[in-house]
Design a protein around this nucleic acid. Structure first.
Lengths: 202, 202
DNA sequence: ACTAAACGGAATTTGATCGTCCACTTCGGA
DNA sequence: TCCGAAGTGGACGATCAAATTCCGTTTAGT
């Protein structure tokens, strides 16, 4: 989101930095060393600091980037999937892709005072919840998803699934799909266990 | 595991330290500040260092403590549960109890060079796998558990579920049972999705 | 009552990360 | 082609958190 048009090379570096920062933050969390990020981007710390005055600015940029990607992916899934359940499933898989979920978890550590309270962020978030909610309702109406779980459950399930990869055994990281499917089956209609507690609100 | 008989008060502190260390490591991982552990145990850092020359020694002690608890819990579940599936289910729930799973994940970060390669540890681990394997086979033979998932899958599913609580949204931490049940249903016989990949070996 | 053992926590040491600064390089318009 | 603004990398000094040591004081146990 640079205000002034950047010079071509600077623009390139900006992108490289965001990308690297996403990866590194996913691996090491919000407090990852700035230098590590710079290195990963193939750039000097000086360059990093020129574009983002401090860690806060960088993290904000990452969060912004992430929420937009998320909304896009959700919308695309809704449009593409032959039916709501399929869309839901592919969205969940998208969210849990290596690094993506971890990034989300890391970002969740953010103080609420940060950009998480920005009206712009709030709007994106709401948009996302709404899309997701629509999918869930449709999937349930179609009888594909058990009625005793809600949108909030999905969000939480995702959170549960998405540890920092660094903390996962290699084999899980290597084929997360297998375990995701186990969980997804748990959500399908015809679940045999009565779930304890209340459906979590979004 | 003190060699020489300790003075009564020292023995008491030893236990308090192990307990506190388990809790703190579960919350903050392997690298948790030693002072935090000491404080949590209601003890000075000096005392902590008197008993455990360095962090390594403390972590080793914790790991040792944990693997034994795990084997015991598994054996007890096998003996108690009216059937294998019930035993399996209650064991999984035991493992994912607040703090327990997180401790396991934290310990998994350990370098293999550490005590994880101790013959004694290896033996305990094997014992555990064997017990678990027996339960899984029985549950599958009884038709209660889908045949396309194995012991290794359970171990990994547990790993997936057990992030550091510090990194989980409060609501997940507050009622993990709900999400566990979703996953457990995914494991029950009659799963509707063909799982990708191979059953993970233990 | 006496001594070896244990205690707590202040003080010191160590190591890591931050963010600044500046000499050098590159882009892109004239 | 040339020049200045914009951009770059990375060494450097300040800061800080945590590890570990040290020692005067307290306590268990005989």
């Amino acid at each position: 989101m640079p205000e002034q048009p950047l010079r071509a090379d600077a623009r390139r570096n900006f992108d490289k930095i965001i990308k690297a920062a996403c990866a590194v933050v996913a691996e090491r969390g919000i407090g990852a060393p700035m230098e590590l990020i710079a290195r990963r981007a193939g750039v000097g710390v000086g360059t990093l600091y020129r574009r983002f005055p401090d860690r806060g600015a960088l993290i904000t940029a990452i969060g912004d980037h992430y929420i937009h990607e998320l909304v896009d992916a959700t919308r695309k899934a809704a449009e593409t999937g032959p039916d709501a359940w399929t869309a839901l499933r592919s969205l969940v898989i998208w969210c849990a892709a290596p690094g993506r979920g971890a990034l989300a978890t890391a970002l969740a550590d953010l103080n609420t005072e940060t950009f998480l309270s920005t009206p712009e962020f709030a709007r994106s978030r709401e948009e996302w919840i709404e899309l997701l909610d629509g999918l869930v309702r449709d999937a349930q109406a179609a009888g594909a998803m058990r009625a005793d779980a809600g949108t909030g459950d999905i969000v939480l399930l995702l959170n549960v699934f998405t540890c920092h990869p660094a903390e996962l055994p290699a084999r899980v990281a290597a084929q997360p799909a297998r375990f995701l499917h186990l969980m997804l089956d748990g959500l399908r209609a015809g679940g045999t266990t009565e779930l304890p507690g209340e459906p979590a609100p979004p």
